[in-house]
Design a protein around this nucleic acid. Structure first.
Lengths: 190, 190
DNA sequence: AGTTGTCTACCTATCGATAGATAGTATTTA
DNA sequence: TAAATACTATCTATCGATAGGTAGACAACT
């Protein structure tokens, strides 16, 4: 279930698949391309991931685990502001590393066209990351307000990444970070 | 250039293509599927739109014109609040009508994988709609603040649609509308 | 001996795209 | 007016490329 359970070759395949999916969605990967990229034949990719849906699900699950690991415990001693900053940084890294949007922003948009298992994994990602954010906010806000604000923060970050990629202007992410900070402060204050 | 220049059959093709693209992106359309849906052969679709990129570009251009027409003049007599409400409603309609995200949210995410002409048209959509919003805000804010807030509003709306579709929860859009309203009010006030 | 990982070879289905023909409708010209 | 020409919108048939997926052989390691 966790990422360490994959063999080195399977991990390589997941790496390449994640990269391609972040740029073009689920349909942007093909067994042949992945095989060529990691130096095997397409049949060997099927050995590790029997069907394409299995591969997609694995990519999303590993991505979710990695992000959640990077975010850490939302209820620990760090300040709320530093937790939110970590959330922004994690998103910004996703944009800069791959010159592409968050994997689940890409897949979330096409959720209606995804194999069921993959879509479920994407939904799980969003619920986890919104849950983490709500939990980080909960020290300063009521549960109801924290839930709503958390969903809004994730929405805005996702959208900012889309705008950044679509208009080739990275400043959208920092712009949204800045305005969201004001939004959080206002909610906490009043 | 405008949508009235398309023949009835070409318009039908664009309708179906837009619907499919909003659910699964550019790769979700195929000449055969579109042909079947409108009752012709795939070669006939090529007659109207020689290559797939031509079709994609036409879909996005028509979409942009339709949305901009619906928004109207951002500098007319209506109040700023009513203009923003219209913007929200237009986005909400996109979600409800097709059970799918905004076309350009879908395509924006995969901008790096799109044919050049299609990507350019998507970028144009975003610049137009952000420009409209900035213009609508400009009566109450400095140009610099209006630009930034406009980009943030569009970002948040795009992201809210992704979350709504990915988690099958439409309330994200209203939630974001409400929080954005507070954000605009705060900016105008101070 | 059994497991793991990869291979060759193949399948069916679909993709975008093209060639060439045809019937009907305009438009131009003698 | 009548014939010649061009255009519109479709068709059938086909192309090469690629898609996801499978069967079975083979070699290496435990």
């Amino acid at each position: 279930m966790n990422k360490n359970s994959y063999s080195p070759k399977a991990s390589q395949i997941l790496d390449v698949a994640e990269n391609h999916m972040r740029k073009g969605g689920f349909d942007a990967i093909s067994f042949r391309d992945l095989a060529t990229a990691v130096g095997v034949k397409s049949a060997s990719v099927h050995y590790h991931f029997p069907a394409k849906a299995d591969l997609g699900q694995a990519v999303v699950a590993r991505y979710r685990e990695r992000i959640m690991d990077a975010l850490g415990d939302p209820k620990d001693q760090r300040s709320m502001a530093s937790k939110l900053q970590l959330l922004f940084d994690t998103y910004a890294a996703a944009l800069k590393d791959g010159d592409s949007v968050c994997l689940c922003c890409q897949l979330g948009a096409e959720a209606r066209d995804l194999p069921e298992d993959v879509a479920a994994e994407v939904e799980r990602f969003f619920k986890n990351v919104v849950g983490w954010t709500a939990s980080a906010l909960s020290s300063s806000l009521s549960a109801s307000k924290a839930d709503k604000l958390a969903a809004h923060i994730i929405s805005a970050l996702q959208g900012a990444m889309v705008l950044a990629v679509a208009t080739d202007d990275e400043s959208h992410l920092e712009n949204t970070r800045s305005l969201l900070k004001d939004c959080v402060d206002a909610q906490v204050a009043g």
